[in-house]
Design a protein around this nucleic acid. Structure first.
Lengths: 159, 159
DNA sequence: GACATGTAGTATGATATCGAACTAATTAAC
DNA sequence: GTTAATTAGTTCGATATCATACTACATGTC
């Protein structure tokens, strides 16, 4: 077993910390880019909700959105109020459960999402090269594996 | 050129979006774990500042912390006030610039950081296996490459 | 040296987010 | 069937964060 092999197999908690630190930095930087693609009076979180509804489909309940966004019910409640006031969504009471609502996108909301995605795609496209897409594509399976691992253990408690 | 090769070289914006989405999910989940390792009356951001001072050294100015944390001056100003009230840091006016301060950790602050890191390490250690450390270690160079790429282009503007 | 410009930190008002308490409706237990 | 427990959503108070404006000091220009 030579030195090279030793080094390559000697992974531990240090790599885990480095991994999460890098992921954190990456997210901060990419969020900053996203922010620049969203009109000033709107927040990233509003985009996330609209984007989620476009991708996963209309008619979701606030609670479903809550778990998709990893935020509290109160936060979603507030965000939906903002989005409704801006005319990006409409809500209707659920037909089967009088406690519940359903959230629907308006044309304006879909337009907002399309605009933001377009701008973001152009922004990324302005500096991402084939080589970069390849690096991301090849790292993706690892990211997915670790993300799923965290998800499976998201109820783990210290001690 | 067979199908396998075609598939493997056909990377584009879709991979970029997936990459950032996965990174975002990963960060949210790992932050949730960190939150569980920090006493209830303190915030993750307070830990980040103390951790930064332990790792990069005492005596930094608020402005230096500002750029390291990727937050505004006002945010750091507020966070430092909290940390000073809790007795985790002390501030002294700079000897060479009367506008500036320097931030120093107290023993209590160092203890807080050590505790949190220890708890977090144990929490991660409770479900991360050798295989997982390896996956993270091997993905690390890609994460670093993309993070640096984002950093270099962090001034890019949408059109 | 006087004055304009720039920089470090703070103050203020707004918003996103959270935790906890609350209301209303559903479901389960008996 | 009545009561208890659960669930969906809102309200409220607190805090982190931001953008903007402000103060005090520093530095460059003439």
């Amino acid at each position: 077993m030579n030195v090279e092999r030793l080094r390559n197999t000697n992974y531990g908690p240090a790599e885990a910390f480095a991994y999460f630190t890098e992921a954190c930095e990456t997210v901060q930087l990419s969020e900053a880019m996203l922010d620049r693609c969203i009109p000033g009076e709107l927040h990233r979180s509003h985009f996330y909700i609209v984007n989620h509804l476009v991708r996963k489909g209309d008619g979701q309940t606030p609670l479903q959105i809550t778990s998709a966004m990893h935020v509290t019910k109160a936060t979603v409640s507030n965000s939906l109020a903002v989005l409704e006031k801006r005319g990006f969504i409409e809500t209707r009471p659920s037909a089967t459960d009088a406690r519940s609502k359903q959230v629907f996108l308006t044309e304006s909301g879909r337009e907002f999402q399309k605009q933001a995605i377009g701008t973001l795609t152009r922004l990324f496209g302005s500096f991402l090269r084939e080589e970069d897409y390849r690096i991301m594509g090849e790292a993706l399976p690892s990211l997915v594996t670790i993300r799923k691992l965290l998800h499976r253990n998201s109820n783990a408690t210290p001690d």
